[in-house]
Amino acid sequence: MTTLEKVRQRAEADAKTYGYYLHPDPEFLNDLLEGLKKNEERYGYPSCPCRVASGKFEFDRDIICPCDYRDPDVAEFGFCYCGLFVRKDVVEKKLPIHSIPERRPVEKQARAYAMAPEVIEKPARATVGVAEETAQVKKKFWYCKQCGYTVFREDPPYICPICKAKRELFAEITIGAFVRG
């Protein structure tokens, strides 16, 4: 059985590794941690407290905290969808932390909830809503020029989880075959 303290420690360790802060309002933070604990008890894994999990691991994988959308959300807005992870400048300048649009692609939600296919074809009009982009994310290899840490993902991390170098110190690795003629 997990405890609130364990959930908190895990979140703190993860924030530290990736150079983020946790939500500065202790009450709001506590609600999020309680939500994560509850989900871990319900589903066996800490899925995002602000999303409805299907309860099927293979479909909820992308919304297990820290979710796949955290880093792009923090990069764009300064905090993630539920508000657990916050960028340094947002905390230091006390910038407002608010609800942000759901980045999880409609296709992923549809798969998780086994929605009718016609629902997928016409995404919500208007809205603040859902990222238009499809689930096809272009991942690349990135390496930290300071320590050599290598990672395969869409964008380089905010900081290097190993040596804490800034994002700018990451470079893309391009692999090409060199044939001598």
Partner: peptide, 28 residues
């Protein structure tokens, strides 16, 4: 989910529906 999508909302919570017409997504 059908109700939210039918009203043109996105599947994000909280979703508030005022007087069966206006739909508000998120804490706003």
């Amino acid at each position: 989910r059908d109700d939210i999508r039918r009203r043109g909302g996105s599947l994000s919570y909280p979703t508030i529906i005022v007087d069966d017409k206006k739909i508000i997504t998120g804490y706003s």
